[in-house]
């Protein structure tokens, strides 16, 4: 009987604490920047607005992507969060790397790890180029290594 009581309290408690909240899909593509504002092969810090559901709140917040134009209609957008522990990386033009201030991981312009403890390349946003509009989707985790 005590077992039954424990289970009746414990199982819902575990679900309550561990199962992610039921969530509606967030808006899919967001216009972040115009293609004409980007320079070839130069990562640009782009701040764009997105509606983000944070628990019970719907917040319009600024989000950041490091956007690089790699070809006429080709664009890569990196998440600014270091794949090590999630500190924000920034672009250092003088040595052409992304550097994380926490444990000095550095990444090449195409996001690959050059040095430091980061376990994998920078994560990338899904990108769609629509005319001159650069649209960003969800962040996809990069492969290990």
């Amino acid at each position: 009987m005590m077992g039954a009581i424990t289970a009746a309290l414990g199982i819902p408690a575990l679900g309550y604490l561990l199962v992610p909240a039921r969530e509606k899909k967030q808006q899919k593509w967001i216009e972040a920047v115009a293609l004409t504002d980007l320079r070839q092969d130069t990562p640009e810090q782009v701040v764009f607005q997105r509606v983000h559901r944070d628990g019970w709140k719907l917040v319009t917040e600024n989000a950041v992507a490091w956007v690089v134009k790699t070809g006429e209609k080709e664009v890569i957008a990196f998440s600014p969060l270091c794949t090590h522990l999630g500190c924000a990386v920034s672009w250092h033009p003088s040595d052409q790397t992304f550097v994380c201030p926490c444990h000095t991981s550095s990444f090449s312009p195409d996001g690959k790890v050059i040095s430091g403890p980061a376990p994998r390349s920078l994560d990338r946003f899904d990108v769609r180029v629509d005319g001159i509009k650069v649209m960003l989707g969800e962040v996809k985790q990069s492969a290990e290594g």
Partner: peptide, 10 residues
Amino acid sequence: ADPTDSTYIP
């Protein structure tokens, strides 16, 4: 707290 503030060094 500003999640977009990349100048902050944790």
